[in-house]
Design a protein around this nucleic acid. Structure first.
Length: 563
RNA sequence: GGUCUGUUGGUGAAGUGGCUUAACACACCACCCUCUCAAGGUGGCAUUCACGGGUUCGAACCCCGUACAGACUACCA
C-alpha cells in the first residue's frame, strides 16, 4: 500500500492543492471581495467610468480626449468617474509619474470623484486604485481560477515561446499559445507541483474555453456590432513577478470597482474578445465598451500616423498649459471632436457651456481623425475674445506667474493700464480676435510697456521713408494737432487736417481713384504716427493706443525718432 | 501570415435609399469695408463621396470583390 502511494498511482493532486501551493498566502476568496465592494447604489442610467493610464508622467492628447469623455458621461448621468493607475509594468513607470498625470488632469479641469488624488492619497470606497497595491486581489482571483481548473502554471521560457512562434510562422499557422501548442496545459498537477517545488520560474495562464471557429459579438457603443472569432489563446493572467497582465487586471478591477462603461482607445478593440471571455469565465456581467478612434497626425512624408508622445510636442497635454491656451478652449475643442454635432449646437447656444450639452456615443466619429491644431487655436482665439478685459488680465497674470515672471511683475505694477490695453476693441458684439493664447499676448502689446519698448526701429515706414518728412509729420502732429482730450471723431478729423496741410489726401476713395496727384494718403500719415509711437506697423485702434500712451510719452517717443 | 477596423474637398466632418446640383466649421483665394493689423461682409474652393462590379425606377448611403491605411497578434499598457 505504502509503495503504491509513493509511486503516486493512487493519488491525484487536486486543483485546490495546486492552487494552495502556488498561492499559499492568499486566504481570502473572491466572495470576500464581492462583499467588500458591493454594487454601487446609483440612480438609474448612471454611468461609472474611469481613466486608467500608466504612470508615464504625462497625459497625451489622445488620452486626454478619452479622459474627457470618460469624465463627461458620468457627469451627464450623475455617475462616478475615477482615476486608476495601471502600474503593473515596472518598465513603464516613471518617477513622479502619478503626479504628472494628476497635474495634467487638474490643469484641464478634469476632476475625479474617486481614485488617486496625489502620489500618496486616494479617495473612494472601491480602492486601492493603484494596481501594484492590489496584488493580493488579483492573486485571489487567479487562485480561484486554478481551483476551478480554468487556469494553470506555465513553465515555458521566452525562448520556447519564440520557437513555437517561428514554427507557426513556418507552417503558416495562427500565431500564439493555444490548443496543442499550449504545452503546459497538458501537464499533470503532480508535474506542475514538482517543477514549482524545484524553483522553476512560471506564469499563470488562462485555460481558454474558447473555440476559434465560433463567433462572439461585441456591441460597441460607438461602432455597433462587431463579430470576432472566440479567443482560444491561453493568455497570461499573472506574470512571474506575481503582478497581473492588463487583461486580467481589467477584469478584476472593473468588475470590483463596478465600472459600467469602459471608454478607451481603439487599439484595445482586438483584445476585447479576451476580456469578454474573462468576464464569462467568472460569470460576471461585462461592462459596456466604447472604443474611440485614434487621434492621428500627418507625418513629414504625408502619411497619417498615431500622434506620438515622443515625436510630437503638441501631443503632450502640458504643451497647452505652457502655451497658455485656456482650458475651456481645449475642452471646447475636445467636445467638438468628440461629438460632431457639438459645434453647431454651441454656435446656436453661445450662452450655454459644455455641461449643458449631452454627450452621445452615436454622434462620435468612428474613424481616427487628424488632430487639428489650427482649429484649436481658432477656438482659443474666439474664446479669449469673449472674455472681459479684467478676466484676460487675471488669467494672463496667473499664466505669467508660472511662465514669464518678468511680465507678471510688470502686469502687477500696471494693473489698470494693462486692463485698458486688453480692453481695446473688446467687450463689443464683434470683439477683436488677436490673442490666440496667453503666451502670445506679450507679442501683441509689448510696445505699450516701457520695459519692453526699445525705440529700435526695424520697420521702414512703408510709403513714407524720408527721415526729414517723417520728422516733419510727427513734429507737426504732436505740436499742432494732437490733443489728448479729443474724442475719437475729432481725433481722426485732425489727422485728416494734418494730412491735407502736408499734401496728403484725406479721403481714401479719392486717393484710390487718383493716387498720383498726392504725396500719399491719410493712411500713410497714420502709419507714420503709428510706427512713430510704437515702432510697430500693426497695432489695434490708433486712437486708443495714443490715448493710453498719453501725450507726454508719445512726444518722448517721437522725439527719439527726430534725432 | 491571421483577426478586426476604417476610407466623403487642404483639415474636422454632416449625411444611413429619393428633401444632396453633398450641410456646417477651420484653412486657403478673391473682392468689399477700412488709418495699419485683427475682426466683419460677399463670393470661390468635392460635377462627386478610394476603386470595380451588383441590387434598385433611383445609391455617398444596401451587397460582393479589390486597393490603401490603421490597430492588435508580448511575462507592455
Amino acid at each position: 500500500m505504502i509503495g503504491l502511494y509513493l509511486k503516486g498511482c493512487d493519488y491525484r493532486m487536486t486543483n485546490k492543492e495546486l492552487a494552495d501551493l502556488i498561492f499559499p498566502n492568499v486566504t481570502k476568496t473572491i466572495e470576500d471581495y464581492e462583499k467588500m465592494y458591493p454594487e454601487r447604489n446609483l440612480p438609474e442610467g448612471a454611468v461609472v467610468s474611469r481613466f486608467a493610464p500608466s504612470p508615464t508622467g504625462f497625459v497625451h492628447m489622445g488620452s486626454l480626449r478619452s479622459a474627457f469623455i470618460a469624465r463627461k458621461v458620468p457627469k451627464d448621468t450623475n455617475g462616478v468617474f475615477f482615476l486608476r493607475i495601471e502600474d503593473t509594468d515596472g518598465a513603464r513607470t516613471v518617477e513622479n509619474g502619478i503626479q504628472g498625470i494628476i497635474d495634467d488632469l487638474k490643469n484641464f479641469d478634469i476632476t475625479i470623484d474617486e481614485g488617486v488624488v496625489s502620489e500618496t492619497e486616494q479617495i473612494g470606497e472601491y480602492g486601492p486604485y493603484i494596481q501594484s497595491e492590489r496584488k493580493e486581489i488579483y492573486q485571489t482571483f487567479a487562485k480561484h481560477l486554478i481551483e476551478q481548473g480554468m487556469a494553470y502554471p506555465c513553465f515555458c521560457t521566452p525562448e520556447e515561446i519564440e520557437e513555437i512562434r517561428q514554427m507557426q510562422e513556418l507552417n503558416k499557422e495562427r500565431i500564439g499559445y493555444y490548443g496543442s501548442y499550449a504545452e503546459c496545459r497538458f501537464l499533470t498537477n503532480e508535474e506542475r507541483a514538482e517543477r514549482i517545488k524545484k524553483g522553476e520560474s512560471y506564469i499563470i495562464r488562462l485555460k481558454s474555453p474558447g473555440d476559434f471557429n465560433k463567433k462572439i459579438v461585441l456591441n460597441d457603443l460607438v461602432r455597433g456590432k462587431i463579430e470576432f472569432p472566440e479567443n482560444d489563446l491561453d493568455i497570461v493572467l499573472i506574470k512571474s513577478d506575481g503582478l497581473p497582465l492588463y487583461h486580467f487586471a481589467h477584469l478584476v478591477d472593473d468588475h470590483l470597482m463596478r465600472t459600467t462603461h469602459v471608454i478607451r482607445g481603439d487599439e484595445w478593440i482586438s483584445s476585447t474578445p479576451v476580456h469578454l471571455q474573462l468576464f464569462q469565465v467568472f460569470g460576471f456581467e461585462p461592462p459596456r465598451y466604447a472604443h474611440l478612434g485614434t487621434v492621428m497626425k500627418v507625418d513629414e512624408n504625408g502619411t497619417r500616423r498615431k500622434l506620438s508622445k515622443r515625436k510630437d510636442p503638441e501631443a503632450a497635454v502640458s504643451y497647452y498649459h505652457q502655451k497658455g491656451i485656456p482650458v475651456e478652449a481645449v475642452n471646447l475643442y475636445l467636445m467638438t471632436i468628440a461629438n460632431t454635432n457639438f459645434e453647431t449646437w454651441w454656435d446656436q447656444n453661445q450662452t450655454l457651456g459644455i455641461d449643458d450639452f449631452k454627450f452621445d456615443f452615436k454622434k462620435m466619429s468612428v474613424s481616427g481623425s487628424l488632430f487639428d491644431l489650427e482649429k484649436l487655436m481658432n477656438i482659443s482665439k474666439s474664446y479669449i475674445s469673449r472674455l472681459k478685459a479684467s478676466e484676460v488680465y487675471d488669467r494672463l497674470l496667473v499664466w505669467s506667474k508660472e511662465f514669464d515672471t518678468e511680465f507678471a511683475s510688470i502686469l502687477e505694477k500696471n494693473r489698470d493700464y494693462a486692463i485698458s490695453i486688453f480692453n481695446i476693441e473688446r467687450e463689443q458684439k464683434k470683439p477683436r480676435k488677436d490673442y490666440a493664447s496667453f503666451s502670445t499676448i506679450k507679442d501683441c502689446v509689448w510696445y505699450m510697456f516701457d520695459e519692453y519698448f526699445t525705440g529700435d526701429l526695424e520697420y521702414q515706414f512703408g510709403k513714407v521713408n524720408d527721415p526729414e518728412e517723417i520728422h516733419h509729420i510727427l513734429k507737426t502732429y504732436i505740436e499742432k494737432y494732437y490733443d489728448e482730450n479729443d474724442d475719437k471723431d475729432t481725433w481722426f478729423s485732425k489727422v485728416k487736417e494734418l494730412s491735407e496741410e502736408l499734401g496728403y489726401c484725406s479721403d481714401m476713395k479719392a486717393y484710390k481713384a487718383d493716387p498720383d496727384t498726392y504725396k500719399g494718403s491719410v493712411a500713410d500719415v497714420s502709419t507714420v504716427i503709428r510706427v512713430g509711437a510704437t515702432t510697430s506697423s500693426m497695432t489695434p485702434d490708433l486712437y486708443e493706443i495714443l490715448r493710453l500712451l498719453g501725450k507726454e510719452k508719445t512726444k518722448e517717443r517721437f522725439e527719439k525718432l527726430y534725432r
